[in-house]
Amino acid sequence: MIIAIASGKGGTGKTLVSTNLFQVSLDDRVDVVLVDCDAEEPNDAVFLPGEPKGMQTVTQQMPVIDKAVCTYCGRCHDWCSYNAIFFLREPRRIDVLEDLCHDCGACLAACKVGAITEKTVPIGTLSMRYINKRPALIEGRTLVGTASPVKIIKQAISEAGKHDLVILDAPPGISCPFIATVEPADYVVLVTEPTPFGLNDLALSIETLEQMGKPHGVVVNRAGLGDEALYRWLVDKGVLQLADIPFDRAIASVYAEGKLVVKVLPAYKPVFQTLLDRIRAQAHPSTIA
């Protein structure tokens, strides 16, 4: 079962929910793996023990044009939808503009004389952390300046493989990196806060998930802060509210220290345990009767 923890807006508590949910699952002896898909700002590792063990490089293919073979026909340039091939017939000039390349393979397919080959270039890393010799956390990380984390996210998720529970900590927003993360998920948990910003961004995320036909529920973090508008909206829209995490400076403080709430403030452990049970019931509705 794959669960994505997402939020339209950053900083609503996605990482708080992901890491604590991971810990209660682990305490429950569930076969669980956490995947940090926020490859631009991965943070889950801050909350879990251990040093990264396996480190892999995520690469993309980059075309290389052999100018001795090239006939300067311009077909690769015509086929490139990203303006990544600079081409002039007169004066003869052909260059790959690497930062514009999307690794689609069109130029390679276009070339009739075999002048184009590909080299691999690094765009990010995957690292593995283990707890009791079992894989616990997979972290995707873009190299600073990499334009799109999508490939790194997809690779991180596939690296996780099959487990009873795979928790994906999704990147913020509603564009391609978010889609790439929620796409393989069986169920999406949206974390929000009861403020105008929180509601606005939640509405956008839910609109996206509805278009994708993804089942989803909402966790309200910092409940008690802000106002009632969010709750009214959830009722109006018929969106399932999975849990309330109260607004408590103690939680913020534990989080700021890079520690897990369920470990330092055991009073909150039942909140995450109940959340886990409810998510499992939602993701496998057939098993509850």
């Binding site: 631009e40 873009t142 600073v144 990499t146 334009a147 799109s148 990147p171 990196p177 700021a256």
Partner: peptide, 28 residues
């Protein structure tokens, strides 16, 4: 925008001054 990706680079390109807002937490 948050992050360090493409939209962030587009918002930085051409700017003279960056004000970085962070919060006092380990992840911050």
């Amino acid at each position: 925008p948050p992050g360090t990706g493409c939209p962030v680079i587009s918002s930085i390109t051409g700017a003279n001054i960056a004000l970085v807002v962070t919060e006092a937490s380990k992840s911050g």
